[in-house]
Design a protein around this nucleic acid. Sequence first.
RNA 1: CGGGGUAUAGCGCAGUCUGGCUAGCGCAUCUGCUUUGGGAGCAGAGGGUCGCAGGUUCGAAUCCUGCUACCCCGACCA
Length: 574
Amino acid sequence: MRMTRLVGRRIKEDPRDAQTVSHKFLIRGGYIRPVSAGIYSLLPVGKRIIEKIEKIVREEMDAIEGQEVLMPVVLPAELWEESGRYGSVGAELLRFKDRNDKSMLLGMTHEEAVVHLIRSEVSSYKQLPVMLYQLQTKYRDEARPRAGLIRVREFTMKDAYSFHTSQECLEAYYERAHEAYVRIFKRIGLKSCVSIESNSGMMGGKISHEFMAVAESGEDTIFMSPCGQYRANREIAYAAWKYEKSAPLPLEKVHTPDKKTIEDVAAFLGLKPENTGKAVFFRDEKGSLIFAMIRGDFEVNESKLKNYLKTNELTYADDNLIRSCGAEPGYASPLALDTSKVRIVIDNSIAQSSNLVVGANEADHHYKNFNAGRDLPGAEVIDIATVRDGDPCPVTGQPLMMRRGIEVGNIFQLGTKYSAAMKCEFLDKDGKSHPMIMGCYGIGIGRSMASVIEQSYDNYGPIWPITISPYHVQLCSLNPKDGVTETADKIYSELSESGIEVLYDDRGEKAGFMFSDADLIGIPFRIIISPKTLQNNQIEFKRRGEKDVTMINIPELGGFIKETVAAEFAKYKA
RNA sequence: CGGGGUAUAGCGCAGUCUGGCUAGCGCAUCUGCUUUGGGAGCAGAGGGUCGCAGGUUCGAAUCCUGCUACCCCGACCA
């Protein structure tokens, strides 16, 4: 490709709206352009990168017997009513009516569509297992798109769905899909991408993993053990917390005037926050009151609590609701409450600790020496603590590392949630009908591209891995005179003919101008030709991101580039 | 949905508080000449409903009211 013809200008200044590295460089390098909030056009260089990522994804999906299909973006609401999701998914599902007043929606994921397809095409155990995948546009009406391609409304996703006759078959396939994902993210050049245990959320199902590109700009908080044996999303992470028990002392009411916060109470009584119990009141989606108690130095993990309570919504309860069960805001404890009006759950940290300070359900008073086993027998004891940076790994006890991650992919063992609801069944050997057992497997394509930048850039632009770089080599023709143009043209056509993808900067601009554009385009290898190098019948060869240059004799150039490119590709072999 | 911010040429900004000449600057674009190894110089040119709609005023980018879009934090989120 000649740069004189290339559409998509480079921008020298950071766009005002961009905060993250990938957002800035994707705009500045001429890869994407915003059209509306969270909706982007892809320019030629961006499109080439996306296609290369898609090609790798296709290869790995095909390698695990996936069959590519294409399902519609626009789906009838009735399909989603069958699964029950039409009512349960919120405003991020974009609903609209067609001209006949029929309710339609834009697909944000395609479980319903694929089940609709499979249930009419597959009916016997002999046809299973099977996996279908597609690369298709998804639309989610995100409340807050952000950070360029990292959180968008319209995006391309590879989504795959597997169908099995047994849980064992699903689990075996799930493992293969997991391995395929590891290969994909290695091949596209993510330097740090880990699979972590995750919360299944609205998808239903039990076991699931998220593939996280570790990056500061990530939206999720993840915990990783230094040994690599434990990795989990903060939403479900737990740690090997140690608690100390001592002999219970008698309950004692103490005067704590105007001391409402954990810090104030602890300081006033000369204790540490871990010697106190924190009371947190929630209201669930039905309006019921939940009293959660946790040691004073911990925070309640609302995801864990939601999962335990099997509720979709938790908000903090207001003071009136808190008082309705006999508790006093700021001085609350689980003692002597009206348990018909409140459900009490206590964290392990409370159950395993002794002689804590808790509220007395009376203004300006607390109790000392609360012991859950003695004072609150039969309480629901669960893990609702939020892991903190440095908490002990559940496997090895080493301090967990807290990181941010971009979720580039996820895999779920769905089970029969959709197949049962939508009657996607197969006949077994005995002629009996069963719902198929499903898995689903997603990868965000655009988000993956952005994640690669987040992990591979310098001050001047992205540094693309050769596997997804828009071109293999950039050819810069400097000061094109004295035969430079002729030689550059010849190198361009010879390399192109030998299968090397060349971006040829034939604009004859100032060197610095061309180099800074080249940095923004981020191609890993650069060939520079000028009257100076041509004097010795040579070109200059440079790697993106490195200072050193190598002089190569022009007759040897073709072979050298082929070898160098091949060697670079080999580094990303999975 | 709550909180904060922004909106003036393709991009980045000044001007707004304190209303007043023809709305500026840098980058980019076009023309000519000179340049040519890390963002070239000179000379010239084109490009604006000052986000939108009302209002106040002799006069509004500037003051008032309403709206919209975009960004950030939070809530939310396979």
